[in-house]
């Protein structure tokens, strides 16, 4: 694969990869939530993009319609997303695995439907703009600081840094949580709910908590996504997003939080690196090709190496 780089200046090139890094970071955060649900609690959350949308829209609506300060809107929107997680979880988590997955899909579809049709609230398919005024100010300041060390042109650096620092913080929190007795109960539930119940653990409550936390994490990914494209509209928070998240999840390895970053970076470098290859295909076919590749990744990993790259083999080999 020989990149056609002849006409692209080195700086633009680096900026491009920073952009890829931002997307990879956003997906990493998103998939941390999936890991908590699927990898550590054993529940299949196919509606994560819906929670991401709730977070982003709530944030923007609080800022734009109600004039809230972003410093208040962000935590509030996160709480709203978590509340949505609880509301979805309460009935869904009682259902058997396949039904739970379908229920989460339905929840996400409802969110999509509302985002598209409740035009006065969400702007419909035109979306919401202007919620990122505070961020723009911060970004200008940061770029000013960067230019003092000669990097003022790399305008992707601030968001890149914020994204990956956020990921690191969330990663640390989740890894710590996992090592607590709470995390231990979660692992037991993942493995055998009946055994956990027989030992006095209220598995229902834990599963609801898991989904609520993942919803909050999804919301955070949603804010960063919104800042990245400076627009919030329904198409971004689609089932495709969740699908790519799952591919990242299994690629990095079920049961490994740090694997999420690895999977995301790998997948996005492959997907975006393919841009440099000139294909005789129209734009929508290229888009289809990318999704087809992701689908193949999902199939191949699950078929050939279900623990992914960093999944724990001991926790895969054994079954009671």
């Amino acid at each position: 694969m020989i990149p056609h780089l002849i006409s692209i200046a080195p700086f633009a090139h680096a900026d491009f990869w920073l952009g890829v890094g931002i997307v990879a970071g956003i997906y990493s955060i998103f998939t941390l939530g999936l890991q908590l649900n699927v990898g550590f609690t054993g529940i299949v959350n196919l509606g994560q993009a819906g929670f991401m949308a709730i977070g982003a829209y709530a944030m923007a609506i609080l800022i734009l319609t109600y004039g809230w300060s972003p410093w208040l809107a962000l935590p509030a929107a996160t709480l709203i997303a978590m509340l949505a997680g609880v509301i979805v979880a309460m009935p869904a988590v009682r259902l058997r695995g396949d039904y739970l997955a379908i229920a989460t899909i339905a929840a996400a579809e409802i969110v999509q439907s509302v985002a598209q049709n409740a035009i006065s609230l969400t702007g419909g398919n035109n979306g919401l703009l202007g919620f990122d005024a505070a961020w723009q100010t911060i970004q200008v300041w940061l770029l000013g600081a960067l230019s003092s060390i000669g990097l003022g042109d790399m305008d992707q650096i601030p968001l890149f840094a914020v994204t990956w620092i956020t990921f690191a913080v969330l990663l640390a929190i989740l890894v710590t949580l996992q090592r607590t007795p709470w995390g231990r109960v979660l692992r037991a539930i993942r493995e055998d709910e009946d055994a956990a119940e027989a030992l006095g653990k209220n598995t229902y409550a834990y599963k609801v908590q898991s989904l609520a936390l993942a919803a909050g994490i999804g919301a955070i990914a949603g804010y960063l996504l919104a800042l990245n494209i400076t627009l919030i509209y329904p198409g971004t928070y689609s089932a495709d997003f969740t699908f790519i998240g799952f591919a990242i999840l299994v690629l990095g390895g079920l049961g490994s939080y740090s694997g999420v970053a690895l999977g995301s970076v790998l997948l996005w470098f492959v997907l975006e690196g393919a841009r440099f290859v000139d294909l005789p295909l129209s734009a929508d076919k290229v888009a289809a090709l990318r999704l087809l590749i992701v689908g193949l990744v999902l199939i191949l990993v699950m078929a050939l190496r279900p623990q992914g790259i960093l999944g724990k083999r001991e926790e895969m080999v054994l079954r009671g």
Binding site: G97, E191, G255, V317, R319
Partner: peptide, 12 residues
């Protein structure tokens, strides 16, 4: 024992 995540069996 089978070589895959035990909780993968849980779903159906």
């Amino acid at each position: 024992p089978p070589r895959h995540p035990p909780y993968l069996l849980m779903l159906t």
